[in-house]
């Protein structure tokens, strides 16, 4: 159960990271009067440079956004997002998510996830999960579960010698 929870947690985390990297479209800002007339935000802290090749936006707090032909970069403290026409790379301390076409990799301490088309692999050291879209296998240490052609086989580790007594 712990293993399943770990996979679920890591999958959710990876999903969250990927979601961050792809960037869902934020809702359009509503034209509403500000209750406070920009008391803390000085227009001078926001820089926007734009031309036909792209746009650079610099926001307070070290946030930089660059857009150009075929891609965009977003830099936040500790997080870098770089997108191209075909892929994206999200980096944060200890975590790196890369996508290119139908390939994706997620690397974080103790775990790597790679996918290529229908193939996916999760490697957490003793725990490995592989699938090619049709067949799958899971290994946890010496225990192996294979799903092939709809059939599941489970190979349990050698549990050692069977004895529980020293009786004369």
């Amino acid at each position: 159960m712990k293993i399943i929870n770990k996979i679920l947690f890591v999958s959710l985390l990876a999903g969250a990271v990927i979601t961050t990297g792809c960037g869902s479209e934020p809702p359009a800002p509503q034209a509403q009067p500000s209750a406070v007339e920009s008391a803390d935000m000085k227009p001078a802290d926001v820089k926007i440079d734009g031309n036909a090749a792209g746009t650079n936006i610099s926001l307070p707090g070290g946030i930089k956004i660059q857009t150009g032909e075929g891609g965009a970069k977003v830099n936040l403290p500790g997080i870098n997002i770089d997108t191209t026409e075909t892929g994206a790379k999200v980096s944060m301390p200890g975590v790196e998510v890369t996508t290119e076409g139908d390939k994706a990799t997620v690397n974080m301490p103790g775990m790597s996830v790679t996918s290529d088309g229908a193939n996916s692999n999760v490697d957490m050291g003793e725990i490995k999960v592989n699938t090619d879209g049709t067949d799958s296998n899971v290994s946890v240490g010496d225990m192996k579960i294979d799903v092939k052609d709809g059939e599941t086989t489970i190979q349990t580790p050698d549990s050692g010698e069977k004895t529980n007594t020293d009786a004369e």
Binding site: D158, S159, G160, E161, T163, D166
Partner: peptide
């Protein structure tokens, strides 16, 4: 115990 190295039988 997978490897019984103390058994008497």
């Amino acid at each position: 115990a997978k490897y019984l190295l103390g058994s008497s039988d």
